[in-house]
Write a protein that binds this DNA or RNA. Structure first.
Length: 676
DNA sequence: AGCACGCCGACT
DNA sequence: GTCGGCGTGCTC
């Protein structure tokens, strides 16, 4: 496999292995090979070693084995190929996500340590043979390992049995916090996932646990350390330096079961005897890969599960419509939580309290009183939509929104005494003048986390105020009374759970324009509510209707089912898949025609094309919607069109001799934002 | 990408 | 009759 970005080189090439390289030339190792003419080298990976080449011409010789460590295992290669095929992308792009950059020092240390271990094992084997001792114990195939903690909150052994059967599961997380055996507090979901991984480890198998961000990862790691030895955990995440990441990656290649945790790219980690892939909160957009070919970790997990035969679990408080679809198909099994501790959710319409602060923050009196009461005994969580002080500024005289004089972007205030600055370019609006009425003074609109904190501080003078937002986010707070103001997604875990949770900016959060607003809001709110102590009030302000009813009854699965039904009616994802086709008008028209040619007969109803509409640079854009059943044909057809356009690109007349136009056809599958 | 091959216009 | 322009296509 060549490390090339060119779609026309995204296939296997055969090379002859010279005698001197034969010992190291095994599948998975990094190599350098000649391509096209002498002296030009490309790097790549050996995928297969065979006695007879498929290629009929004369073979070039392998130039160099860069390192003897087989970093691209056959399983991961097969996964990369399937993922690329599904999204009409390059396998080498996927491999780049799967295999971190090589770090020579780290790799040498790994090789040396491994050689030493192998030597020690050989000596031990000799001693064992001489002494005729018992053979080393292997994992008990019958399943139940002694001393493990049961996975609580679900039916007896329901999850254990499912893991043993290697089932695919949608698990409704338990909406509260739990204390680990080491005394630390984490979301119950983390405890559940840790117990699942520990059980799988007891079966002698590895787990891959995928979380959206490092705050979730920290909780999961805390929970895991209470179940297993630290040496059984391997981490792969964006916070690590390159050497750290490579060291942990290499440790996954060892032939012993591990628990591998990290963000979305960890789904590609090599794993010894993979027994479980589990995703926390698969609806979080951080599971969507922003690099080509843009395949989300949910889809990668589904492909990997099919190839490895491992168990698969989607764990969340509110089920994504994608997983709902899989449940309705019968492909994934529903594991409901034991409804013993449902959260105490109270929706409140905007019946504003008489208190001065409550009025300015539009907090209803009942919520205000609940917060005041809860503060006597423990921490209270206040969820707001935005960070900063005043997220929006307007002209004080004409009330029109204020804009940056440099780039015309919107203005905001970061903290109380900081001058207004531009959201986009950061310029400080010094000599600002309104473009509508020549006014020169601002009016602050809305409350960001900092302004909410300041005003709450005034209302509760003796209370500790803690702010957790995008710029400064906390992972946990103590059980002492405090007001914790957090932007959605940045809520810290409180020891013992919050004594009250207030969700303030519901209306504003719902005002965002997106196909998935309702689903996203439900997820943000459910996740915050799940941080409450048992029976503590969770008050949601200014949200009514189906969403409020869903939270009160804690029936997110039914909401997901309704949501999916709506998408079916509209023929929107995930009821169907989508692909964007972008390029010159001729290239797009050609690709669309080929699609109609290859999806024909009774299948033709399974595909429809929206557009083309004009895009930037004389390009046009079409959106193809298609049923999952024709996904392979659609991907293969569009892939062929991309390759053809890359191979024979026409020169534009009247341009400089060496001018190369951009690729005249680009394809992107399953972009969740295109129909917003 | 980047290089070789080939087909057509201008030249000793 | 050949030299070299650049468009077209291939890379094991």
């Amino acid at each position: 496999m060549l490390e090339s970005l060119l779609p026309q080189l995204d296939r296997l090439f055969d090379y002859r292995i010279p005698e001197r390289l034969a010992p190291d030339a095994r599948p998975g190792v990094r190599v350098k090979v000649p391509l096209r003419s002498a002296g030009r080298m490309t790097s790549g990976y050996i995928v297969e070693v065979t006695a007879h080449a498929d290629f009929s011409g004369t073979l070039s010789e392998l130039e160099e084995v860069v390192s003897a460590v087989p970093v691209l295992t056959p399983e991961v290669w097969a996964l990369a190929r399937s993922v690329a095929d599904r999204a009409a992308g390059n396998a080498s792009d996927v491999v780049r996500l799967a295999v971190p950059p090589r770090q020579v020092r780290v790799e040498k240390a790994f090789v040396a340590r491994r050689a030493k271990a192998a030597e020690a094992a050989a000596t031990a084997a000799v001693v064992a043979a001489a002494g005729n001792t018992e053979s080393p114990e292997s994992a008990d195939p019958s399943g139940d390992t002694p001393n493990r903690t049961p996975i609580a909150g679900y039916g007896d052994n329901v999850i254990e049995t499912a893991l043993y059967r290697r089932a695919r599961l949608s698990i409704t997380a338990i909406p509260t916090v739990r204390q680990t055996s080491a005394g630390e507090w984490v979301g119950a979901w983390a405890e559940t996932m840790a117990a699942m991984a520990a059980f799988t480890l007891g079966l002698g198998r590895s787990s891959i646990l995928v979380v959206p961000d490092y705050r979730d990862q920290d909780q999961l790691e805390t929970a895991l350390r209470a179940h297993v030895d630290d040496a059984d955990i391997a981490r792969l995440d964006a916070r690590q330096t390159n050497p750290e990441r490579y060291a942990h990656f290499l440790s996954c290649l060892e032939e012993r079961p591990r628990i591998i945790i990290g963000n979305r790219s960890v789904v590609y980690a090599p794993a010894f005897e993979l027994g479980l892939i589990a995703l926390w909160d698969d609806g979080d957009p951080l599971h969507d890969e922003p690099l080509s070919p843009y395949v989300s970790s949910r889809d990668v997990a589904l492909i990997r599960q099919a190839q490895s035969g491992s168990a698969l679990a989607f764990v969340s408080h509110s089920r994504s419509s994608e997983v709902q679809r899989l449940v309705e198909l019968g492909f994934v099994d529903d594991v409901p939580q034991n409804p013993k501790f449902l959260p105490n959710v109270i929706p409140t319409s905007a019946q504003v309290s008489g208190d001065a602060f409550a009025q300015s923050a539009r907090i209803p009196s009942s919520a205000w009183m609940a917060a005041r009461k809860a503060l006597e005994t423990g921490p209270v969580l206040i969820q707001v939509a935005r960070p900063g002080y005043a997220p929006v500024l307007a002209c004080a005289s004409c009330t029109n929104p204020a804009h940056c004089l440099v780039c015309d972007g919107p203005l905001r205030t970061q903290s109380k005494n900081s001058p207004p600055s531009c959201v986009l370019c950061g310029a400080i609006a010094a000599q600002w003048q309104c473009r509508h009425c020549e006014g020169t003074t601002f009016r602050l609109i809305g409350q960001g986390s900092a302004r909410t904190a300041e005003e709450l501080g005034r209302a509760f003078p003796a209370t500790r105020i803690i702010v957790s937002d995008g710029t400064r986010s906390l992972t946990d707070v103590s059980e002492a009374p405090a007001l914790v103001i957090a932007t959605r997604g940045a809520e810290p875990v409180a020891a013992g759970g919050y004594h009250a949770v207030l969700l303030l900016d519901g209306e504003r959060m719902l005002a965002r324009e997106s196909l998935t607003v309702a689903e996203d809001c439900l997820r943000w709110w459910s996740n915050a509510i799940a941080l409450a102590a048992p029976r503590a009030p969770a008050i949601i302000v200014g949200v009514g209707g189906e969403l409020a009813r869903t939270l009160v009854t804690w029936q997110q699965n039914r909401f997901a089912s309704d949501e999916l039904a709506d998408r079916r009616r509209l023929r929107f994802p995930p009821a169907v898949r989508v692909a964007t086709v972008k390029g010159t008008p001729e290239a797009v028209a050609g690709a669309v025609k080929e699609l109609h040619d290859s999806v024909h007969g009774e299948d033709s109803a399974k595909i429809d094309v929206l557009g083309p509409v004009p895009d930037e640079d004389d390009f046009v854009r079409s959106i193809v919607r298609f049923d999952y059943s024709v996904g392979q044909v659609v991907a293969a057809t569009l892939r062929a069109a991309v390759i053809r356009n890359a191979t024979s690109r026409r020169k534009i007349p009247g341009r400089p001799a060496n001018f190369r136009p951009p690729p005249s056809l680009r394809v992107r599958f399953d972009d969740t934002e295109i129909l917003d």
